[in-house]
Design a protein around this nucleic acid. Structure first.
Length: 294
DNA sequence: CGTATTTGACCCGCGC
DNA sequence: GCGCGGGTCAAATACG
């Protein structure tokens, strides 16, 4: 239970401490999905992955009103800060979104989802799009601006490290995330986000004055056709190194066809700044790509 | 006291 | 049909 302290720190205010504990490293890993030419982005598969849209109207955060993720659409973001790499995957997301559960009455999505599993067995539970990335970090649970509640832990086959399951604490948000260490490299943490946040990041920039901290510094959202994710941002870019994308679930082919990138206003930065600061994206996406917004 | 974590049990899908 | 592995539930417990 000593970890607890550390965890609490991360959970509650992670950000700052976060940077202290995590140090993203950058290592490359050839994307299993794309056969890059060798260029950095090819390597990352960015070009084929992202379809940077013009940061339309900053679809900002009034997310609370956003309808719950009923279908497998995502658009919100899990953020992840010290991630040194990103990858994503999801395909199963394309499932029939409509599975109603036998008892969907007074339960919210979350409940529904879980019950879905147990409830009707005839139907397959449509998986939400998933987005995974690897991070070199000493701590398992990376702070990403959202609050998560751990609801399970399981031993992983072929790995000495357990996998932890987290769910966004927000009532109507059914986003889940799995965190596990790579058995190959214990220093690497694999984080997988599933679903989309239907609310803005609870972690608000510390106000007032001091500001800006890392939060406003960067926040990127990867919104995809079927789903979107935000890359987090509470890390200053200087702290991040080169991320690498990696196909993590061999079982599920990547589904990047409609990946797009746009910013999420963590509430702090006005739209104008959004245009200028793409946070991690600036590092990840070549300016040519980014400038779609013009 | 409220909230978050721990942890064993349970459920489900899948491969054999 | 059975066993295995992954994912989730929920009671107990810890912590602020």
């Amino acid at each position: 239970m000593e970890d607890r302290e550390a965890k609490n720190m991360e959970n509650s205010m992670g950000i700052s401490s976060f940077t202290d504990h995590y140090f993203p490293i950058g290592f490359f890993d050839a994307p299993a999905t794309t056969g890059g030419d060798g260029s950095f982005f090819d390597l990352l598969g960015l070009q084929s992955i992202f379809d940077i849209p013009p940061l339309p109207t900053p679809p900002p955060p009034p997310l609370t009103t956003a309808p719950p993720p009923e279908s497998s659409e995502l658009s919100n973001p899990p953020a992840t800060p010290n991630s040194s790499s990103i990858s994503s995957s999801s395909t199963e997301a394309a499932a029939p979104a409509g599975e109603e559960r036998v008892k969907g009455e007074g339960e919210d999505d979350l409940e529904k989802e879980k019950k879905t599993m147990k409830g009707k067995k005839g139907q397959k539970r449509p998986r939400e799009p998933r987005f995974a990335f690897m991070t070199k970090s000493e701590v398992d649970h990376l702070e990403d601006g959202y609050r998560w509640r751990k609801y399970g832990q399981k031993a992983v086959k072929n790995s000495p490290f357990p996998r932890s399951y987290y769910r966004c604490t927000s009532a109507m948000c059914g986003v889940k995330k799995r965190v596990e260490r790579s058995s190959d490299d214990p220093t690497v943490v694999v984080t997988t986000y599933e679903g989309q946040h239907t609310h803005p990041s609870p972690v608000v920039p510390r106000g007032g004055g001091g500001g800006g901290g890392s939060i406003s510094a960067s926040a990127a959202v990867f919104a995809g056709g079927g789903g979107g994710f935000s890359l987090a941002p509470q890390l200053t870019r200087s702290q991040l190194e080169i991320p690498y994308f990696r196909n993590l679930t061999s079982a599920s082919p990547l589904d990047f066809d409609r990946f797009s990138v746009h910013r999420t206003s963590t509430a702090v930065s006005p739209p104008s700044s959004m245009m200028r600061d793409h946070g991690l994206l600036q590092d990840l996406v070549p300016s040519e790509v980014m400038r779609e917004e013009t």
